Simulated scan of single mutants.
Amino acid sequence: MRVDDTDIQFDVTGDGEPMLLIHGSNLADGLRPLASALRRHAPWLTPVRYHRRGMGGSTGRDGKPWQGEPVSVERHAADALALLDALGLPSAHIVGYSYGGTVAIEAALAAPGRVRSLILVEPTLREVPAASLFMQEIAPVMDRYGAGDMAGAVTASLTALDAEHWREPLATIGPDAFDQAVRDGEFFYRAERPSLEDWTFSAQRAAAVRAPVLSVLGTRSGAFFEEGRELIHQRFPHCADADIPGANHLLYLQAPETIAGEVARFLRP
Rank of each mutant, 00 (worst) to 15 (best):
G185I: 01
L214H: 04
Y252H: 15
A260P: 02
A260I: 07
Q180D: 08
D179S: 13
G218W: 04
V263Y: 02
H249S: 14
E227Y: 06
L214D: 05
E227W: 04
G218D: 01
S195N: 12
F178M: 10
D179T: 12
H233G: 05
I232T: 12
D184P: 13
A181P: 03
D241H: 10
A223S: 13
R220V: 10
P194G: 02
A191P: 04
A260Q: 04
C239Q: 07
T219F: 08
L196E: 15
E230P: 09
Y189P: 06
G228S: 02
E197D: 14
L251Y: 06
G261E: 00
A207E: 07
F266L: 05
E197L: 13
A240V: 11
T219N: 04
L253I: 05
E262N: 14
H238M: 05
Q234P: 07
L196K: 09
R183A: 08
V263A: 03
H249E: 12
P237Y: 00
R265K: 14
R265A: 12
S202P: 10
A207R: 11
A260R: 11
E230Q: 14
P237L: 00
L253F: 08
R210F: 08
V213Q: 02
G261A: 01
A211M: 07
A223F: 08
S215T: 11
R190H: 05
A240Y: 09
P237F: 00
P212G: 01
G222C: 06
L251M: 14
Q180E: 11
L196A: 15
G228T: 02
Q204A: 15
T219W: 09
